[in-house]
């Protein structure tokens, strides 16, 4: 566990994840209060990465569940292994008739059978899916529920029990409570709104594009081969581009791509000409590129 906010930030930095004060605070509190975190923000600011880095910083297992439309409880919580159940009833046919053999009435046979435990609906025939897995693990885990906004609204309902009580109830068996409460991170691109019930149970973290200093730190950490001069030019330019009204703003991953590409192409300096030539690394729409070129005087002042 992290012992303070400063330590949180340092340990994550060791995993090459630079945190803002806000991110570190929320992560620290989430671990302290044992509450799930709902992370929102534009694409490419490192929401998923955060969960991965927490796991590796704490040196615990990451269980990842990617959400998609149509994801149901059988894929997320648990599933009965029907084929195995069927197979076992066939194999154990003799044994079963032995147990029930002495009884003459049907009711008696059923009674006999139920007296000897509900064998076919026990943990042996249960396939644990990510959520149940993270609950039943003996060690603490990080449970990453990625892109929760892609799932159907009904799916959220299955999550509520896990998020508030860290338990899963299986009607046939009973309730599984977490041995070690997992650290739950949910990410969302805000394609749709989460229900209030879900949000109430989570801490909320909004990760926006990083500040200039932060982004420079990220670039020099992730693209060490780029010179300090080039890095700062790239970051400053991207930050200026973000102030334009674009359809798709360049995110951190695009900044990194750009820096890497420029290094690879052997540029040591980002001037207007090279910038315009390589704009397609960070801008994905032709109109955005045109707009940026239009404003090139304010943007490329290096």
């Amino acid at each position: 566990m992290f012992s303070s906010i400063e330590e949180t930030s340092k340990r994550l930095e060791k995993e090459k994840y630079i945190t803002s004060r806000a991110i570190a605070t929320t992560v620290y509190l989430a671990l302290k209060l044992e509450k799930p975190v709902l992370v929102e923000g534009p694409a490419g600011v490192g929401k998923t990465e955060l969960a991965k880095c927490i796991a590796s910083a704490l040196d615990i297992e990451l269980i990842r569940m990617q959400c998609y439309e149509g994801l149901d409880e059988a894929k997320a919580l648990y599933e009965w292994e029907y084929a195995k159940q069927l197979l076992y009833t066939q194999i154990l046919k003799d044994k079963l008739s032995e147990i029930t053999g002495a009884e003459e009435t049907l009711a008696g046979a059923v009674k006999r059978l139920t007296e000897t435990e509900d064998v076919f609906f026990s943990e042996k025939f249960l396939i644990p899916r990510p959520i149940l897995k993270s609950i039943t693990k003996k060690q603490k885990t990080v449970l990453l529920i990625d892109e929760i906004d892609k799932s159907d609204p009904e799916f959220e309902a299955f999550l509520l029990e896990v998020l508030s009580d860290f338990q899963v109830t299986i009607p046939e068996i009973g309730t599984f409570s977490a041995i070690k409460k997992p650290i739950v991170i949910l990410t969302s691109n805000s394609a749709r709104e989460m229900s209030d019930a879900l949000k109430r149970r989570c801490l909320h973290l909004y990760i926006d594009y990083p500040t200039l200093e932060l982004e420079q730190k990220i670039v020099s950490l992730k693209v060490p081969e780029s010179s300090a001069r080039l890095s700062s030019q790239v970051v400053e330019t991207v930050q200026r581009i973000r102030t334009l009204k674009l359809k798709k703003e360049p995110s951190i991953s695009e900044t990194l791509d750009w820096a890497k590409a420029l290094v690879m192409l052997g540029y040591e300096d980002l001037n207007e000409k090279t910038a315009i030539e390589t704009l397609n690394f960070i801008l994905k729409y032709q109109k955005d590129i045109e707009l940026t070129i239009e404003h090139s005087r304010e943007i490329f002042i290096n």
Partner: peptide
Amino acid sequence: AITEIPLDDKEVFRQTFQTTLIKDY
């Protein structure tokens, strides 16, 4: 959460409020 954080850091203080109370971005 308030009991877990240093109260003299304004940024941390603000984020504590935001992360616990503001769920709609």
